[in-house]
């Protein structure tokens, strides 16, 4: 039916448990296609969309905000609308809220209930973001969580933790590092990491 139907290495090899869940995915997909509830074409397109999303999109948004004060103001006022200016579309009425890091305030994003994440600008979340440890501890012990990522903040920097929901996704606008006045927008985008946009790290000065 589709190119995805043939078995690959994970099927029937090694643990029986993962094999079963993969079979279940195939079974559900086939039944749902036969009932006309999803189409093979829509699934193929969605995989293309998933493949097209990466933190590079968020990096472009951040770099633009660093070089264009008017864009930054629009981004902080309405993250979803400002991202659309750069061709990044949110889905399903999801609101993107952009949080600005400053010398006084450091923002950190988590989803304690599941794995809500600003996928249109960052792609899919890393495994640690979905882990029990991160989801449990980030809201109560953010400084020790940050320290585990090598981020040690001075005591006088306020840490704000933002718990995402299906309808409200957060993106951190990191501080532009010192010594980057000569860099153009593309070079700046190259400095911005996924982890800095989740808020577990800061953007380091290059070199």
């Amino acid at each position: 039916m589709t190119a995805h139907d043939h078995p690959h290495a994970a099927v029937g090899e090694g643990d029986e448990l993962p094999g079963y869940f993969e079979i279940l995915e195939i079974a559900l997909r086939e039944l749902l296609i036969e009932k006309g509830l999803v189409s093979a074409d829509a699934l193929r397109r969605q995989i293309e969309i998933l493949d097209s999303r990466s933190p590079a999109l968020g990096s472009r948004v951040v770099a633009r905000a660093w070089v264009d004060a008017a864009f930054k103001a629009r981004l902080l006022a309405d993250g979803s609308a400002a991202c659309e200016e750069l061709g990044v579309t949110m889905y399903d009425g999801t609101k993107l809220i952009v949080l600005e890091n400053t010398p006084e305030v450091h923002n950190l994003v988590v989803c304690t209930l599941c794995s809500c994440y600003p996928r249109p600008v960052l792609g899919l979340p890393p495994d640690w973001y979905k882990s029990r440890a991160y989801r449990s501890r980030a809201v109560r012990w953010p400084r020790s969580v940050l320290a585990e990522f090598g981020t040690n903040l001075p005591d006088d920097v306020e840490v704000r933790v933002h718990d995402s929901t299906a309808a409200m996704r957060y993106l951190v606008l990191p501080m532009r590092p010192e010594g980057t006045d000569d860099l153009d927008e593309d070079a700046l985008a190259g400095l911005v990491t996924r982890d800095a946009m989740i808020g577990v790290t800061r953007v380091a000065t290059p070199g």
């Binding site: 304690t112 209930l113 882990s131 440890a133 449990s136 809201v139 109560r140 990522f149």
Partner: peptide
């Protein structure tokens, strides 16, 4: 699934 604020082990930075 309501894990927020519970004690837990150190984070394994994995992907």
């Amino acid at each position: 699934n309501d894990l927020g604020g519970l004690p837990a082990e150190p984070i394994v930075i994995s992907d």
